[in-house]
């Protein structure tokens, strides 16, 4: 994520919405469905750049 993208995220005023708003409104596609999918794609790309040790487990725990 670039600093500009983060600025859009952090500077925006919504709560949950804020973490989705990683793109200034002007550059968003007009179709909200396309914009939502585009956002998911960007999130996926950001996460894919992050290397993890094989030993890292997800942050939830199954209890038997």
């Amino acid at each position: 994520m670039t600093r500009r993208e983060l600025a859009a995220v952090l500077g925006s005023v919504t709560s949950i919405a804020s973490v989705r708003a990683q793109e200034p409104p002007a550059s968003q596609p007009e179709d909200p469905n396309a914009a939502a999918k585009e956002q998911l794609g960007k999130n996926s790309e950001t996460l894919s750049k992050f290397d993890l040790p094989m030993s890292t487990e997800p942050a939830f725990l199954f209890k038997a």
Binding site: M1, L10, V19, Q22, N43, T46, L47
Partner: peptide
């Protein structure tokens, strides 16, 4: 320096 925005968005979505 971690991708907080993408993490929160992905998990909540």
């Amino acid at each position: 320096d971690l991708p907080y925005g993408a993490l929160t968005s992905t998990i909540i979505s």
